[in-house]
Amino acid sequence: MKGLRKYLTPFAPDQSGAVSVLFSLSGLIVIIDAGGCTGNICGFDEPRWQTQKCAVFSAGLRDMDAIMGRDDRLIAKILKVVDRFDLEFIALIGTPVPAVIGTDYKGLARVLEKKTGLPVLPINTNGMALYDEGVEKAYSELIKAIVPEEETSQNGVVSVIGLTPLDYTKDEMDMIQATLSHTYKEVRMLGMSSIDDFKHLRQSEKIIVASPAGLKAAKLIKRRYHIPFEMLKLEKPNIAVTGSKVLILHQQVYANAIRESLNMCDKDIRVGTYFKLNKTLKEDHDIHFDDEDDLMNYIKEHNIDTVIGDMTYQPLIGQAKLIPLHHTAVSGDD
């Protein structure tokens, strides 16, 4: 049945994706919810929240706020705190409640911009889409609001986009940074350190895309600022594959990079994903899944004997062998 999950818990939602991009950037992040969404985003999907302070808040909506559409109260609550923090921007993160009542994020953003003088990012996530949608929306709003019109590129500066803790562990990020440092003088991991990386994005001579969620932003950057991009390549992972028909389950860029690094001509290696599957990045047999049944049937029908993917996929893959590959967006922080 469409939408029915009997084995997998829901994947990281779009609101978590948006926050994962903004978390380290010194903004006021206001999640427009009653509290539960904030708890899920911070307590489950954002590993940095345990150790790093961030101005992330729940709007604390209550039933009458939603029923009466009391946006003025939300604005008043935000205005109360902006002077007390040193902020680079305000981000409004959507959740199912504002989606139901049709909150006008852009209208809210305009009012707040006028009253505070800060850039305001209206991110119309709804808790029903997946994290990569939220990542994409957050990048798009950040680039529109933060990247200056005037600045020239510098040789040896590269920026990595689409890299969030929902896809990459801290160790993997460090490894990517170290690898790129062999080629580039300065490697900037967008969204992982400071807002300055966005303010000086135009200094980059190249953009490296680490996930399909970063692709749209990379294209926008290319169109606006003529900075070229390329997809991330990973070091050969320590994975021993014995089967002959292999399915890699992850986000597409990561899975592609694993496939490329395995470099096994004698095997049929396919990429499958529940997340964005970009046509320009896919090979013939790569596939997108929506529901649990899709994956179960695919494994059976195509005689897949090896799956490289998150441990939580185990109940869906029948007799195929599972080679564990953690994915935080699927099973949470490792």
Partner: peptide, 8 residues
């Protein structure tokens, strides 16, 4: 919505 069951 998926987000409500995320931490389950």
């Amino acid at each position: 919505p998926g987000c409500c069951g995320r931490n389950t």
